[in-house]
Every structure is written in structure tokens, then in C-alpha cells.
Write a protein that binds this DNA or RNA. Structure first.
Lengths: 204, 204
DNA sequence: AGACTTATCTACCACTCGATACAAAAGTTG
DNA sequence: CAACTTTTGTATCGAGTGGTAGATAAGTCT
């Protein structure tokens, strides 16, 4: 074991609590007092473990990404591109209204606009959102190579569309929309997805 | 004319400047120092005119709503429901990437999550977003009565879908996406909209 | 003119922000 | 045991927060 006094709190548990605070109040709205209270530790412990408030956010985002990667693995394992889209949208509808978490998506709630001194936070969150979109895009590129998507359809555009709807659902959920409302949006959105074997010429 | 010393600044101009600050930094991120500097006035003048920081936001939101109502009048004047959807989405793509304004939508950028003392701000913004959705819904209800929408289609669901995509496009634009990207999303989204005369049974 | 009303400016309030200095505590290593 | 290393709690730092007191300026009223 390493030398020195052992840490008295569980890093993962503390990160989960911090994640919830950031999720509910955004980066700027989350104060050190909120965070330390939720995590059950004092400021010096927080700074020793995570370096700064921004470092704590990044650690929480990493943990958030771990959670989401499980969902994405299931989503990307869909048999067809349309399956993937369906899984993606319904997964978003469920997770964004999971009563175990604050409503919406941490990557959206975390902060689209921040004050002086935290201008890079929105970029950080945007980069993480873009990663999810990239995963979808790669899957759709593969799908098209396998003849699973119509010739005229654009994998990148479809991935961006789904990512955009997911962000919108995050906004909707944070406004208090219930799970059924998000499912409805997911269903309508799926109508924009090209059907395997059908034409996608944009005329209908 | 009313008695007393006349106001030395133009309320509308000042509100436009305040709007931009809220738009770019969000409610919590916008400080009094930023606001007064942008508006070209001192704190006492701000408080005399708008009562509080929250009062200033609401006044800016009212002004924002005025601007948007012009767009919505054009959008709702579309001949068919699909016309309305097309106008709505392309209008959003343009306005959310208008170089004259910060990217995205004030009603989204303003604050989805706020800190202690401004918990009601997200509700305020959500209510204003919901108003746009309601306008679309009423227009689609009318469209369906006029036989302009297929029997199986749900006006409320379509309005909510469009509103959700608009929010998502706001998030996308605030991440730095260019106008062409938003147009692409608008085009794909339109594919989810039922075509007048076609069936809408959700089977494909 | 002089009373009255409203706006503006300087200076400042109490408070909270993120972050830290310092010493005591709790372990490991020799 | 003593030397060393790391964490923890108390107490606080300087900077910035939203908001305001009080004096002065700039108009209208009689």
C-alpha cells in the first residue's frame, strides 16, 4: 500500500454526488459549498483529489462517459442502422427521465454558456457530445458499406440529426417533460430515418 | 412629458445589449459588471429601470419574444402544415447562426440549470419555449381540421418534435456548428413530417 | 424663481465565490 | 520508537457578487 494517511472517502461515491450537483445546477451554478456538502468532504480534500473545480467536473464527466458507454454498446449493437437509431432514441428517452438522476443530460445541463473564468467548459461539454455523434456516424458508415442504408442517405447527416434530437430531448426533459413525451418525440423522429430498401431522395 | 430628470439612455438599445450578454453567458454567468458595461449605464440606473437582474432578464426575454414573433408570423403563414414545418426549421437554422447574435437560442442558452437563488430562471425560459411549441400545435390542429394533415398524425406530437429539434439545433449552434450543418439537420428532420395525402401509420 | 420629481454617479454594503496556509491526525517505513 | 508521507479540519484569503445609500444633476410644475 502507498505511504501516508489513507483517504477517508470513496472517490467514486464522491464523484457520483458531484456529478449530480453539476447535473442539477450546471458548472457555474454548482458552488464549492454545494459540492463539498454533497460529497461529504471539505475543500482541501476536494482540491487534493481533483485539483480544481474544473478538474472535478472532468472527472465527473469521465465517470458519466463510463455509464453512457454501456448504453452505447447496446445501441451500436443494433442489427440495422434503423435498429441503432431506434435503440438510441429510446435509450435517450429512458435515461433522460430516469428518476435516479436529475432530468436531462449532464452534457447539456452542465453548461452551454458560462461566465468569466469558465469559458472553456462549454467546449469541453461540446467535445463530449461530439464523441457520441462520432460513434453513431461510424456505425452508419459501416451500415452503408454493408448495404444497410439507402444509397442517397448521408451517414454523417443522420448521426448529427440523432445527436441533435438527443440534445433537444435533454432540453425537453430538463423542462419537466415526462417519459411518455420523450418517447413520443423519439417515435416521430424515427420517421425521418430512411428505411432499409426504400429510396432516400428527399422528395417525400 | 413626465416630470423629473429624463432618462439618459435608450431602454431598447440597453435591452439589446443586455440580451446579448445573457445570450452569450447565461443568466448566472452574466454579472452586473458585464451587463452595466455592455448597456453603458451604472447599477443604480439598471435597478431603477428594471428592478433586479431577474427583471432585466424578463425584459430582455420580452424583447426577444418580439423579434421572434415576426419570424413566427411568417412561419405560421405557411400554406400547409408541411410548409409551416419547413419554414420553421429553416428559420431556426438561419436565426441560430445569425452572425449578428451569439450562436444558438437565448431561451436555451439563458440557463437550463442555475445556481442557488435563481432556480426559477430555467422555469421562466421553459415557459417561453413552450409558448412557441403551443403556437405550432394550434397551427397543426387547424391544419388537421382543414384536412391538411393525415388522419393518423398527432398535431401535438409534431409540434413537440419540431420544438425539440429547434432546441437541439440551439445546442448544436452553441457548440460552433455552422449554418450548413443546421440546414442539413433541418432537411433530415423534415423527413419525419407526414406528407399531405400520404398515410401516417407509423409502419415505415 | 423655487418646490418638486426623477435619474445619475460615487462609493460602498454584506455576502459568497473558488481556492489555500497551516497544523493536527493517521497511516507506512526504517 | 522516530522519520516520513499523505489526508483532514479549521480558519481564512483576496476577488468578485448582487444590490443600495446618499448626494448631486436635470428636467417639469406653480
Amino acid at each position: 500500500m502507498v505511504m501516508g494517511r489513507p483517504r477517508a472517502f470513496c472517490t467514486e461515491k464522491a464523484l457520483d454526488e458531484a456529478m449530480e450537483v453539476f447535473w442539477r445546477h450546471g458548472y457555474d451554478g454548482a458552488t464549492l459549498a454545494m459540492l463539498t456538502k454533497a460529497m461529504g468532504i471539505k475543500p482541501p480534500s476536494l482540491y487534493a483529489a481533483f485539483g480544481s473545480k474544473e478538474g472535478l467536473l472532468k472527472a465527473a464527466l469521465d465517470r458519466y462517459a463510463e455509464r453512457r458507454s454501456e448504453h452505447m454498446r447496446y445501441v451500436l449493437a443494433g442489427a440495422t442502422a434503423r435498429d441503432v437509431a431506434e435503440r438510441f432514441l429510446s435509450s435517450i428517452a429512458e435515461s433522460h427521465t430516469d428518476p435516479a438522476n436529475p432530468p436531462g443530460c449532464l452534457l447539456v445541463q452542465g453548461g452551454l454558456a458560462c461566465g468569466a473564468g469558465s469559458e472553456n467548459i462549454p467546449f469541453e461539454l461540446a467535445a463530449r457530445r461530439a464523441q457520441g455523434e462520432a460513434e453513431l456516424r461510424e456505425r452508419f458508415v459501416q451500415a452503408r458499406e454493408e448495404g444497410d442504408l439507402p444509397e442517397g442517405s448521408d451517414p454523417a447527416a443522420l448521426a448529427r440529426f440523432l445527436s441533435t434530437v438527443a440534445s433537444g430531448m435533454g432540453v425537453l426533459a430538463s423542462s419537466g417533460a415526462d417519459r411518455e413525451a420523450l418517447r413520443e418525440v423519439a417515435l416521430v423522429s424515427l420517421g425521418a430515418f430512411p428505411v432499409c430498401g426504400a429510396a432516400a431522395d428527399g422528395s417525400g
